[in-house]
Every structure is written in structure tokens, then in C-alpha cells.
Design a protein around this nucleic acid. Structure first.
Length: 282
DNA sequence: GCCCAGGAGTGTG
DNA sequence: CACACTCATGGG
């Protein structure tokens, strides 16, 4: 099956810590559980080729939603390129798209993401899926829904290597389910953040990640250690989370989430030797 | 061995 | 409100 989605860079989009269950194969294809299927994506000549096990209807639609195929990247880039720092540098990140993930999976995933690196976060989530999720294909399990994950005790979760995050996961299961999250979909960002932050293991940064990737709020602007460095280096901005968030909201507006992801990728790329795409503000 | 990681919670000034 | 400290663990 095919999906016209342009631009799209699978390596940038699926491997940068927005979502944690996609795996890259040697041929450049990416596979991961989406809904109740194991989906494989391959980009060739500007066309995305989609296959799934088991097959079925609605796969392409699920992929289109997950990759936010409706986002007008050119318009977003044009808007953000008016920022002198981002300028023309964001062009080379044109294929990076914000992903839309399941709210429940996103919430639990980013509660696990506190003070851990991306490979480890992926491993913890895989462990949860293997232990509590339904098997959907050989070697692949669905992320466990609320009912299934709620069967895990804190001791069980610690044995899976979650560390202190075991208490977060248990506390989240005790506090909210998919229906509770569904009620948050209509809230404005301020209320949504408040609702999420009321959950154990959810602070400013996790709330913003879940708002952006799980609830699709493109105006959300998560700030982690990489973003603190980027904001200081590129804009001379430092201070509390609140202060930095307000700076970003004013500077980047409704597409702050894309600005954040561009800056995040750039900052990490620099750490691994790539040149900086952006020009520092003087 | 060492440093760091898409931080949060709690207590203190 | 701002800072300091603790939390548990594995990847590079």
C-alpha cells in the first residue's frame, strides 16, 4: 500500500525520541506496532510504502494519522523561518515531522523517560509490552492498555528495571485511564497541562511532551536538558522552566512544537559532530 | 570506573 | 519563587 506524504524523513521522525517503539532495519525500513498490527514503512521516491501484519483495513489511515500527514510542512517552515535564528537552517530538517501517538501510551512512555536515555526508554517500554501487552506478531506485543498494565505491582515493575519510575507507572494507573484522558482532549493547553501535572511522575517537561506528541498540541514546547542548552546557546535565554516556556510561546507561537523539535535535533546532532544549522542571535 | 540521561518530588531558605 | 537534594539504573 502507498501513502503520499511529502516531505518525510523516517530516520529523523521515528528515531529521535518522540516515540519509542519503531525499529530501523538495515535496508532503511522502519517497523513498529501501530494499533493492533505490526507495521513496516519504507520511503522511496517521495512515496511511503506501508505493509502490515496482520493485514486489514485502515492501516494507511492509521499511518497517515500517526505521521500527521495533514500537517502543511511548507507553511510551518515558512512561518518559523521568519525567526532569524532558525532562518534557513530548518530546511535541512524539512523531513522531520511531529508524530501523533496514542495518549495513554504517550503518557506512560514519557513518565518512564525521566532521567533516562532513549535506548533505555525503548527497552523499558518493550519490557512492559512483552510482559503485559497482547502479542500481535512474532516477537512484537502491543503496548498494554490501562486494564492490563494495572495488573502490575510496583514490585513487578521494579523487576522489569524501571527503577523509581515503577511508582510513577503504578500511580498513573491508579489515577487515570484512557477514558479520563479522553476527557482532556477538549481542554485548552493550560488546563491540559494542569490535568497532566496532577498525575504522579508528570512535571512540566513530561506534561509538554504528552501535550505535543499524545494530544497533538503543536503549540506545546517541551524543555529538557538539550533544549536548555539550545535556548542558551542560540538565544541567550536561561532561567526557570516557566520563563523559558513563555519565551518560546511568544517567539514561536502556534508551531512552537515544531520549532522545539528542530532545535532538539540540531542540538543533538551537534553533540555527535554535525555542524549547527542555525545562526546564533547577537 | 566514569559521566550522563527527552526529570520529578520533596524539603528548605 | 528559587535552589538543593534524592531517587534507581543502564548506555556510551
Amino acid at each position: 500500500m502507498e501513502l503520499e506524504i511529502d516531505p518525510l524523513d523516517l530516520d529523523m521522525t521515528l528515531g529521535c525520541g518522540q516515540t519509542f517503539r519503531w525499529r530501523r532495519a538495515g535496508d532503511g525500513s522502519w517497523s513498529g506496532p501501530l494499533g493492533e498490527r505490526l507495521v513496516t514503512l519504507r520511503m522511496d521516491g517521495g512515496i511511503l510504502y506501508v505493509s502490515a501484519k496482520p493485514g486489514g483495513e485502515g492501516v494507511v489511515e492509521d499511518v497517515a494519522r500517526h505521521l500527521r500527514a495533514e500537517d502543511d510542512i511548507d507553511r510551518i517552515q515558512l512561518t518559523l523561518s521568519k525567526d532569524r535564528v532558525l532562518g534557513q537552517g530548518i530546511r535541512r530538517l524539512r523531513g522531520l515531522r511531529i508524530v501523533k501517538t496514542d495518549e495513554w501510551e504517550c503518557l506512560v512512555s514519557f513518565a518512564l523517560a525521566t532521567y533516562a536515555n532513549i535506548p533505555r526508554i525503548s527497552r523499558m517500554i518493550d519490557s512492559l509490552a512483552t510482559e503485559y501487552g497482547r502479542r500481535i506478531a512474532p516477537g512484537t506485543h502491543e503496548f498494554p492498555d490501562h486494564a492490563r498494565l494495572s495488573k502490575a505491582s510496583v514490585r513487578d515493575l521494579r523487576r522489569l528495571g524501571l527503577g523509581y519510575r515503577a511508582d510513577y507507572v503504578k500511580g498513573i494507573c491508579d489515577s487515570v485511564d484512557a477514558e479520563g484522558l479522553n476527557r482532556m482532549t477538549r481542554m485548552d493547553l493550560t488546563r491540559l497541562r494542569e490535568g497532566l501535572k496532577a498525575l504522579p511522575g508528570v512535571g512540566d517537561k513530561v506534561a509538554d511532551c504528552v501535550s505535543l506528541f499524545g494530544f497533538g498540541r503543536l503549540e506545546a514546547f517541551p524543555i529538557d536538558v538539550w533544549m536548555e542548552r539550545a535556548l542558551k546557546r542560540l538565544y541567550g535565554q536561561e532561567g526557570t522552566y516557566r520563563r523559558l516556556r513563555e519565551f518560546a510561546a511568544e517567539r514561536f507561537g502556534p508551531f512552537a512544537g515544531y520549532a522545539q523539535e528542530y532545535m532538539y535535533m540540531n542540538e543533538r546532532g551537534m553533540a555527535s559532530g554535525q555542524a549547527c544549522a542555525f545562526s546564533e542571535q547577537r
